[in-house]
Each structure stands twice: as C-alpha cells, then as structure tokens.
Design a protein around this nucleic acid. Structure first.
Length: 817
RNA sequence: GCUCGGGUGGCGGAAUGGCAUACGCACAUCACUUAAAAUGAUGCGGGAGAAAUCCCAUGUGGGUUCGAGUCCCACCCCGAGCACCA
C-alpha cells in the first residue's frame, strides 16, 4: 500500500480524540507537570502557515516531553475580542459575535487537522462571559488598589478606527491596526498604572530565561533614566523652573533654557514685546502632528521668551526659549541646554547663535566647533568642581544643590500608563457606573459579568462616544452607592487586557467561583515555557508581566513572573521574501499542502527549514524533501515486519561490497538518539531532522533486513515530528496494541555513543593532510607512529625537522615543521 | 544615531577553536519505462591535473593561535527594536 497521509492522518486524529490522550489531568501519578504555552490565536477566519509554524513545531517538543514522562499541558484558546474582528464584521455586514464564533468553529476544525497534542478540554475564549467576567473582576481589584484609574490626559486617537490607542499600539506615529496617522486628543480615559511597576519590570528581567532581544526591548521601552531635577530661579520671583537632567556634571555649561510649548509657564513668563512671536509659535506647533514633531530630519525651531532664569550653581542669568524639540510630558517639560555637550542643544545653539561653552573635556585637547562632546570626561571652567571626573561631579553637584533645596534626585521613565479604554463595541465592558451624584462607582462583584449587549448598530462614532451609549436599556442602572439613576461606563477594554491573564485561566478553565483556584494554579504556574512571536516584546509580554506583578501584590498569585522561559519564533515569509498578505498574493495555504503532502510533512518541513527563532521565506519546492523521507520510511517498514535475526548484511556501493553489521548500526542509533534528545530540548529541530535522515539513509542500506529493534527505536524518535505516520506503523505494521505516543522516549546508552574506531585527522602545519582510522583512546606515541607511516605525511615533512607536535586525543595530530 | 541579531555553495542551511560546505532542495548524467512521472544510482564551491594530489574560498582588512566560519580590533552590508526621552 502506498503512503496515503490523508487517510491515515484522519484516522489517527479521530483515534486520539476518542481515547482522550491529550486531555491533561491536573496531577498524574509519578509525573512532573510541564506547562507548555503558545500564544492563543486571534480568530481571523482561516489558519495560515504562520499558525502551523507557531503551534505544530512546538508540538514536537510537547510530544517529546510527554514521552519523557512529563505531564505536559498544551492548551489552546482564542483571543477573540478586538478591533480586527469588529472591522471584519463591519465589512461583511455581520454581528461581530456571529462572525467571531463562526471563525472559531472553523479554526478549531483546522487546528485539529494539525495533529497537535492540544488539550481541547481547557479551551478558553476571551469573548465568553464566563471568561470576561474575570477580566472585569481583575479590573475591579486593580481599581480598589488605585491601579486602575480614570484621568484626562493627552491620548493617541485613531481617526479611522475612532478609538484611543495605548502607546504600545502606535507604531511610527500610526495606528498598528490600520496604519492611519494617530492624532493627540485630550480625553478622559481609564488607565492601568503600569508605571508603578516600571522598576520591577526592569529589575525582574534578571529572574527569567528570555531572549536577550526581548529583555532589551523591554528595558528600552520602559526607558529608565536616573538623574535629578534642578531648580532654576526666576529673577524677582519666588517661582522656580525645574529641569530634569542626567548630566548634572554639565551644569556649568548651561547657556540657555528650553521649555516645551506645552509648559504651563510659557505664556506667564513671556515678556510683552515677545508675546506675539511666542503666540504664533505656539499656534504653529499645535497644528503639527506628533509624527511631524518627532521627525529628526527637520530643522529645529523655537523662539525667545524675553525671560531669563538663574543657574543655581553660578547664579548666571540664562535666556529662556520655547522649542518643540523638548517633549512636554517627559521629565518636567523643561531642559537646561548645554550645547557643548548635547547634540540637540548644539544644533539649536548654532542655528540661533547662542553661546556654546565647553565644561567637559576628554584627556586630549578638544574643539567643540564640529560637534558636541557627549561622553563623560573631566570638568573644566566649573567653579569648585573643576578637575572632577564626570561621574563624581554628577553626584557631588546634586548633593550640594540638594542641601540648599535646589535639586532632588529623580528617576524618569519613557513608559506611560496603559490606556485601556476603547470607544469600540467589540470588547469586554468596563465594569463601572457613572452616577451624577456620586461619580464613578464600581459595579458590585455579584453583578458581574457586565454582559456586552447586542446592538444593531455597533459602528464607532467620530465623537469619541462608545457605541454602547446607544444601548439605552443596558445603559440605565442604579447607582450602587446612592441607589439613584446612573449610567454604565460605555467604553470597552483593550484586547490586550483580555490576553494579560489567559494563561492563568488554563489552569482551571471552568471555575465559576474564581478566575482560577489557587491550588490548581500551583499545579501549573508559572508557565514553564512560552513560545510566541517577537512582535509581542513590548506589548503582550510586558502587560502580562504587569498583571502578574500587580496580582501578586494583591495576594491573588504566589509568583511574580508569569513565564519562566520564553522562546520567540521567527516569521514565515512568502516565497518572495515579503510578508505574506492577500494583496501581494504570496499567501501559502496550509490546507492545500496537507492535501498534497499530509500534516506530518508540513509540520516536519516547517521544523526542518531552518532555526526556529529565525523563520524565513517559504520555499515551495522544499517540502518534497521531507515528503520523500516519510515515503522511504513507509517503504522501509515492509521489510521489518519480522525480526529476522540478521546480524550482518551487505550492500553494493560504487562496485564495492560494503559489509553492514548490526552492532555499528546500533551504535549509530544511540548517537542519533542523543543528538535528537539534545536538539529537541534546545529547540534545534532542523538539525534533529537532519540526524533522523542520516540514520534512515543508513538503515536503507539494509534493504529488507533492517533490524526490527533498531527500526522500532527509530520510529519512536520520529514520533514527535511525524505523529500520524509513526502511529500507523507502530500499531498496524509493528503490531503494537498501544499508541506510540504512550511509549517511552528511547534512552541512549552513553557507552555506545563512544566510537570504537575513530577517524583521526593528521595535519602538517595546521593543514589536514591525511585521515587515519585508529582505535579510540590511543595515546600520542601510538598515533604518532601510525601518522608518520602515511605516504602523504612523509611527503609533507620530508627534508624538514618536526619542531613540535600537537595532539588532541581522538581528534587530531598536528606536526609543526 | 543607539541597542540586539545576522552575513557560509545556485537555494534553505550544518559545523564543543580541530577534515568547512552535514542534511535537504535545485541541477546534471545513468538505470527502470514505448515515453513521462515516480523511484533508485552517481556527481555537484572555484581553479590546476589523466590521477594521486595541490592551490584558493565562510562580507572586507588586520590580529591572536600549531590551527579561526568560530576568539579580538576596525570597517562594509542586511534584518529587528528604540529614537529630539535631556
């Protein structure tokens, strides 16, 4: 019978489902638990090859750890609320709920065709009221502790999607969903106080085994910088202007000050004759978009206010300017400008012909005409501090000013609080009630969930009012405080809120009384291994860490980092090396591939094509290689039905008879088993598959005489990679009664992976000149004798004297002449 | 500009400081076939040579070492993230 993947795969998938193999108990006798998490998909409607990469490749490791005797939980779910689903529903003229549920049903079917060891009994969907009840409940716990609050601030507004966005969702000034340029709007929004955790979020990165890229991305994103706020006095006034700086050592070089246009003192301190020009400047900046303002290409602009500030270290009067290169919300919105030691100030000073005064010098003489000197050095022209090193001067100057009340140490962060409210329909309602008498009051926990009402017209509106405002009946509610007439909050939550705790729910997905039972969480959490895309570095992964830390502080969790180990997978690109997209027409459809080659071949090829962290373009011709490999295994099984007890056979190669003996094949098998064991554990699936191919190439030489014991071991090694074909061979051909996926992983014998005969390289002057086959473990004297017997070596050292011999046991001998 | 990755055959890629190019794809020749597909065998970095064998080659230029794709220094290119954050 020919290899027919379609037929056998369906059959075994059904078998596994009926036998409930992958339904993971919370505890299993004498087995350690292993929580293996992959990012749950967003139900876009169709499984694409990227999903296969994300789920079927890690499934190799899942199946491996199960065979190794661990009780592995591999859950799956759907991140189903959110903008894209809603936009798709609008486009298709459907209810978002109908659209999403249809997609979930279809994708569930597709996911099952993957042959992954998902535990379908734990499936979680964020749109399920039983789920978002707890999303709302967690919000209320945060609210009670002041970690969720409402405030009016400048927020990112997407004019197309008609909603606010978190800072993390603005990419290069544009909405990360639709690409429209984001505008700044002052709106009252619900926020999570993630900034309270800025330090812990940076410092605790030490505790986790995550890729360095992810860690640095998070550190950069949080952007901690330690420095001081320094008070500049205004002449004839008690008022001061505070500036934030990390370079107090350059204070003597401050020649002017710059306020951001948003700074509250700008109009107040501007002198009469400058009011016109400053007013005009403020007008112009207001019209600029964030993107324009942030553009580095444009020339710096600014105006003088006519006012002066006094430098606290030397009582020098310096002019105060307004310029939009200073960011209003960061630090104090005001900076002291030290053009000699800051690139931006330098550029500005040159343009407006402001003085440039060097106060830090490297050892050598240095001229500031060309550019600013921004490194640390030694202070010059700095009063009492002349001669100090930068790093000392910083401390001392702050210290001195602090004593006079003119400075205080300060740490600033780039991180903003997380704006979680969205003026859109398709999300979990924020469980708050707005009473005209009492203000905002939380929905009593007993009334949760606040269910999302069905709305005929759920489209967003331009005025920033959520569509839920149209649900008149739903809106009306009694104030939980005074009992009077009140209205529900109409904003919904950002989807990232839903996904910030889903991994907790998998531990206890059907709990009606709590988001998860604490004993059940003990079984599984924190997550042992989390595999997902690098695009979540500063979003989902940061938010989840924040949730975990906040919930830990609330006493809801017993750990403060959610994911012990993180692996980022690469992205599969189209054959043209471009990102796959329908408009480009370079989308690879996994369903077609399965029909042609089977799920085993698809998963194996994805694992084989390169390092998992790397991803890369899909090569349409490549899959045939693993397909052929599986076919050869399929053919090979025919000869193995019976153990023939053959210890030796032969094959003819290049007209030479090659003698094959079972012992050396056995040794090779143990080496292969070790290689594959190590490779799976380190996620090097491509080299593991290569080792499988090498082993099978060797076994093929045996024709119909492949020793059964070795073949069975091989099938077990192959099982995590190609679960269907191995199951079929295991049960149907080899006649085992139980599933291969309940078998133990082959343990290799360390004694057998040591070769008896080894190929030892003979070098002359570090260049390989011969290879000799010798007994393993021979010492230098013996090897030297054999090596010097080689004709080619004799030739290379003829007429010269051996000055030195380098000998590496079992590897090489090198004669230096 | 800063931070983190990476640069190896026609292609995807392999190599604890020790035979560079494993494994696979593509390609070529042969076998099977009326033919093709499938399958199998052989070859496949460049150069010289009948061959044995030798020389050159891991982005570029230096260095360390008996020996460097691997370590160090400088530079070039590609990718990702951050970016007027004081």
């Amino acid at each position: 019978m020919k290899y027919n993947p379609l037929k056998i795969e369906k059959k075994w998938q059904k078998f596994w489902e009926q036998k409930k193999f992958y339904i993971t108990p919370d505890k299993a006798k004498s087995k350690d638990n292993f929580y293996f998490l992959v990012e749950f998909p967003y139900p876009s409607g169709d499984l694409h090859i990227g999903h296969w990469y994300a789920f079927s490749v890690p499934d190799i490791a899942v199946r491996y750890w199960r065979m190794k005797g661990k009780n592995v939980m591999y859950p799956i779910g759907f991140d189903a609320f959110g903008l894209p689903a809603e936009n798709a529903a609008i486009k298709n003229n459907l209810q978002p709920g109908d659209w999403t549920k249809k997609n979930i049903a279809y994708m569930t079917k597709q996911l099952k065709s993957m042959g992954a060891a998902f535990d379908w009994s734990r499936v979680v969907s964020t749109i399920d009221p039983d789920y978002y009840k707890w999303t709302q409940w967690i919000f209320l716990q945060f609210y009670k502790k002041g970690l969720a609050y409402r405030a009016k601030t400048l927020v990112n507004w997407c004019p197309k999607d008609k909603t606010v966005l978190a800072n993390e969702q603005v990419i290069d000034g544009c909405c990360d969903r639709c690409g429209t340029e984001v505008v700044q709007k002052e709106l009252a929004q619900w926020m999570y106080k993630i900034t309270d955790y800025a330090d812990k979020l940076i410092d605790d990165l030490e505790k986790v085994d995550w890729p360095e890229v992810t860690k640095t991305a998070q550190r950069n994103w949080i952007g901690r910088s330690c420095g001081a706020e320094i008070h500049f006095l205004l002449p004839n006034s008690t008022e001061t202007i505070k500036v934030f700086t990390t370079r107090a050592d350059t204070l003597y070089g401050a020649t002017y000050m710059v306020l951001a246009p948003e700074h509250p003192l700008v109009t107040k301190l501007t002198k009469d004759q400058y009011l016109d020009s400053v007013g005009k400047y403020l007008e112009i900046t207001k019209k600029k978009s964030e993107l324009e303002r942030a553009s580095l290409e444009k020339e710096k602009t600014g105006v003088f206010t006519g006012a002066y500030a006094v430098n606290p270290v030397n009582n020098e009067k310096i002019p105060i300017w307004v310029a939009d290169y200073v960011i209003g919300w960061y630090g104090t919105g005001a900076v002291m400008a030290v053009p000699a030691h800051d690139d931006r100030d330098f550029e500005f000073a040159k343009k407006f012909k402001l003085p440039i005064r060097a106060v830090i010098k490297p050892k050598a003489e240095w001229d500031f005409i060309g550019s600013a000197f921004v490194s640390d050095g030694v202070l010059v022209d700095s009063g009492d501090f002349t001669g100090y090193k930068s790093e000392d001067a910083r401390e001392e100057i702050i210290e001195k000013l602090a004593k006079k009340g003119l400075a205080e140490r300060r740490t600033n962060y780039k991180l903003h609080d997380w704006v979680l409210s969205r003026q859109r329909y398709w999300g979990a309602p924020i469980p708050m009630i707005n009473c005209s008498k009492c203000g905002y009051k939380p929905v009593p926990e007993n009334d949760l969930p606040v269910k999302l009402p069905k709305l005929e017209d759920y489209k967003p509106s331009a005025d920033g009012r959520s569509p839920l405002a149209k649900a008149k009946e739903w809106l009306k509610v009694k104030c939980p405080h005074c009992g009077g007439e009140a209205e529900r909050e109409t904003d919904t939550m950002d989807t990232f809120v839903d996904s910030s705790w889903y991994f907790l729910r998998y531990a206890d997905p059907h709990n009606k009384k709590a988001f998860a039972d604490s004993d059940k969480m003990k079984n599984w959490l924190p997550v042992d291994l989390y595999v997902g895309g690098a695009e979540h570095n500063t979003m989902h992964l940061l938010y989840s860490r924040f949730f975990t830390k906040a919930m830990y502080d609330l006493g809801l969790l017993e750990f403060d980092e959610p994911f012990a180990v993180r692996i980022n997978h690469g992205v599969i690109l189209g054959p043209d090396s471009q990102k796959m997209s329908k408009s480009r027409g370079n989308v690879v459809n996994p369903d077609d591939l399965i029909k042609k080659y089977g799920a085993d071949a698809v998963r194996m090829y994805l694992a084989f094509m390169g390092p998992y962290e790397q991803g890369g373009p899909w090569n349409p011709g490549g899959i045939i290689g693993v397909y052929r490999f599986l076919n050869r295994i399929w053919e090979m099984k025919e000869g193995v039905k019976k153990e023939r007890g053959v210890l030796e056979t032969q094959t003819i190669k290049e007209n030479r008879v090659e003698v094959l003996n079972k012992e050396s094949l056995e040794r090779m098998f143990h080496k292969t088993a070790k290689k594959i064991t190590d490779d799976i554990e380190s996620f090097h699936f491509n080299t593991a598959i290569s080792a499988l191919m090498i082993q099978s190439n060797e076994m093929e030489k045996w024709g119909r005489f492949v020793p059964r014991s070795i073949f069975e071991g091989f099938i077990r090694l192959l099982a995590p990679f190609a679960p269907h074909i191995t199951e079929d061979i295991w049960q149907n051909t080899l006649g085992h009664k139980k599933s291969i996926h309940l078998e133990k992983w082959p343990e290799y014998d360390p004694k057998l992976i040591v070769e008896e005969m080894i190929k030892l390289v003979v070098q002359v002057n570090g260049r390989a000149r011969d290879v000799i086959e010798v007994m393993a473990g021979l010492d230098e004297t013996a090897i030297r004798e054999v090596a010097l017997g080689s004709e080619n070596i004799k030739k290379h050292i003829a007429g010269t004297e051996i000055k030195k011999t380098i000998f590496v046991k079992n590897r090489l001998i090198n004669f230096v002449v």
